[in-house]
Every structure is written in structure tokens, then in C-alpha cells.
């Protein structure tokens, strides 16, 4: 997946406080074109960032620009270019999906005839059939999430902000939602996905931003981020506990030991380095342990996320 260097959303030293709680603590970030994951635990400040970007909340300090527009100064112009899928329940319950989409399209500036055509096209895109004429209050959580996504794209905005798009969905519906986001990503839109579900974001994102306690702690293109995982190998060792320990201690001679897990007599070690295979086996023989498996280990976004958090904690500490 290609990431354009064109910055679509730029946050500079954004500070937002609710009473004693600091939601965004001088948050600075650049969101390029493509599918971008804004990752962080619950309460990290992801939704607050989106609300400030939409002009629904005012930052006490700093500024955000979206496609060069300031949400506080030009909210109407800006929202013409944005589609927002909120996390919370927000659909008008006593309408059907088609009516809601058509209404939202008209509020976004489509004429009634255009709104009708466009609503049907979007409902076809998300795979809604006859159920588009059923009242929204009768929909499942997954269907409601899909309608939330549909209303955000009905006016075909170039920038999409999705807040926890797979929230409350079952695995099949999640798959469907990720597939929809993936398809949208191909249409040269900028899609910012707020989520704490890393494996989902990893599947569709080109770029990630990691936020914690209102601060950006890591950012980068996903392929670059995961490149840190090159030359990683996972070894499964079996032997007496003293031998296992001695083996791990001596591994340092050949490579960097990233992770060690003891489960009874079994030991799993993640290493990074360019050691020759025979050196591992030689060391195993020397310590009288068996290497049961030796496989390349891929760094996942989750590993990267955990690393980023651990480093952040060390820095703060």
C-alpha cells in the first residue's frame, strides 16, 4: 500500500482539558493521505482529537488544520470535506436506512434527486438489500454500524474520520466492516480510524499514530514500523531449567534477546540478529537443551504498540 507524503490533517501542540482531566496534552501529529490508524487505549484522547478536528470541541491551545482549513474558523467549509462515523449510537431510530441516508445527503448539500440516487448507491456498496426500507430501530448492532459508515460517505467526502468502526460487532460483521474500509481506502481518501483493536487496524492501515494520555508516542508508515521486525526469530527450547537459563544467558554472544518466556520445561525465546543457524544449535548442544523449533518471527502492530508503551513508561519513569 502506498502512502502519499501529502499531509491532510495537521495537529500542532493541541491542548484540551475537561476540568482536571487532560484529554490532549500538546498533541502534535501529521496525518497523510491513505488509511491511518489512530491507536491508543481507552481514554487516550482519540475521540477528543476527532471532535476537535470536526470543530465540535474547542482546543484551549494549539491548532488543527484539515486540508488547510481551521475547524474553529471555517467549520462549515471543513465539514463539507469530512465524513464522520461516531462511536456512540446516534442514528435516528424511527426512520429507515434509505430515508436517513437521503436526509443526511441533503443536509450535506445534495439535491433531493441526487440524494436519492446516491443513497441507493451507498446502500448497494455496503450490501444492504430490502432491509434498507426497515426501521433502523429493528437493526442489529452490525447493521447500525454499517449505516453509520454509510451516512459518513453519502456525500463522498475526501476525508473520513471513523471512531471505533467495529465496536460491538461480531466477527463476521467485523470482517465485512474492514472489507468496506479497505475498499474505501482504494478510492484515494484519507481515512483516520480510531481504535484500540490493533490487529484490525493493522489489516487496513497504511500509517499508524500511537497516542497515550493525550500525547503522540509513535508515528510512522506501517511497513516501516513493522520493518523493525526484520531478522527476528523465535526459538522453542526444551531442557532442564538450569540449562535453559544458561542457554539464554549465552545467546547474547550471537544476537539480541528480545523476549523470553518460560513455561515449565519449555522455553520460548525471541531473538534479533544475524547469527548462523549452526551457532544456535552448537550452543544448544553445549548446554544440553533441544531446539524444538526455529522460525522467523514477524513483528505485529501489537508488539510495536507494546514496545512503544514500554519505552514511554521508561522515559516517563
Amino acid at each position: 500500500m502506498n502512502v502519499s507524503s501529502d499531509v491532510k490533517i495537521m495537529a500542532e501542540e493541541v491542548f484540551v482539558r475537561f476540568g482536571n482531566v487532560v484529554a490532549l496534552d500538546h498533541f502534535s501529529a501529521k496525518v497523510p493521505q491513505g488509511v491511518v490508524g489512530l491507536l491508543g487505549p481507552n481514554g487516550a484522547g482519540k475521540s477528543t482529537f476527532i471532535k476537535v478536528a470536526l470543530g465540535l470541541l474547542e482546543a484551549q491551545e494549539g491548532k488543527i488544520t484539515i486540508d488547510g482549513l481551521n475547524p474553529q474558523l471555517e467549520p462549515v467549509l471543513l465539514r463539507d470535506k469530512i465524513g464522520y462515523m461516531p462511536e456512540d449510537e446516534c442514528l435516528i431510530q424511527n426512520q429507515n436506512a434509505f430515508e436517513l441516508l437521503s436526509y443526511m445527503a441533503q443536509l450535506s448539500g445534495l439535491l433531493p434527486e441526487e440524494a436519492t440516487k446516491r443513497s441507493h448507491a451507498v446502500l448497494d456498496f455496503i450490501g444492504f438489500g430490502e432491509e434498507r426500507y426497515r426501521e433502523i430501530s429493528t437493526y442489529s448492532t452490525g447493521m447500525k454500524q454499517q449505516i453509520k459508515l454509510a451516512q459518513s460517505i453519502v456525500h463522498d467526502p475526501p476525508i473520513l474520520l471513523f471512531d471505533e468502526p467495529t465496536s460491538g460487532m461480531d466477527p463476521v460483521a467485523k470482517e465485512e466492516m474492514l472489507s468496506l474500509i479497505g475498499d474505501l481506502g482504494k478510492s484515494k481518501k484519507t481515512i483516520l480510524i480510531c481504535s484500540h483493536l490493533l490487529h484490525e487496524v493493522e489489516r487496513v492501515s497504511d500509517h499508524v499514530l500511537i497516542i497515550n494520555q493525550g500525547r503522540l508516542i509513535r508515528a510512522g508508515a506501517l511497513d516501516q514500523v513493522l520493518k523493525h521486525g526484520e531478522n527476528r526469530y523465535k526459538l522453542e527450547i526444551r531442557g532442564a531449567s538450569d540449562s535453559n537459563k544458561a542457554f539464554v544467558d549465552d545467546l547474547d554472544q550471537f544476537c539480541e534477546v528480545l523476549d523470553v518466556k518460560y513455561i515449565g520445561r519449555k522455553l520460548t525465546v525471541v531473538v534479533k540478529g544475524v547469527a548462523e543457524t549452526k551457532e544456535y544449535f552448537g550452543l544448544a548442544k553445549q548446554h544440553d537443551v533441544q531446539i524444538r523449533s526455529y522460525v522467523p518471527d514477524r513483528l505485529s502492530l501489537e508488539d510495536f504498540f507494546i514496545q512503544a508503551f514500554e519505552e514511554e513508561e521508561r522515559n516517563v519513569g
Binding site: 465540535l56 467549509l77 464522520y84 461516531p86 446516534c90 435516528i92 443536509l107 450535506s108 451516512q151
Partner: peptide, 11 residues
């Protein structure tokens, strides 16, 4: 319905 956000995220 909490649908204010639908209106005010639009132009």
C-alpha cells in the same frame, strides 16, 4: 437518539 452529532458533523 443522540443524533445531534449527525447534524453538526455536517456542513
Amino acid at each position: 437518539d443522540n443524533s445531534f452529532v449527525l447534524y453538526f458533523s455536517r456542513p
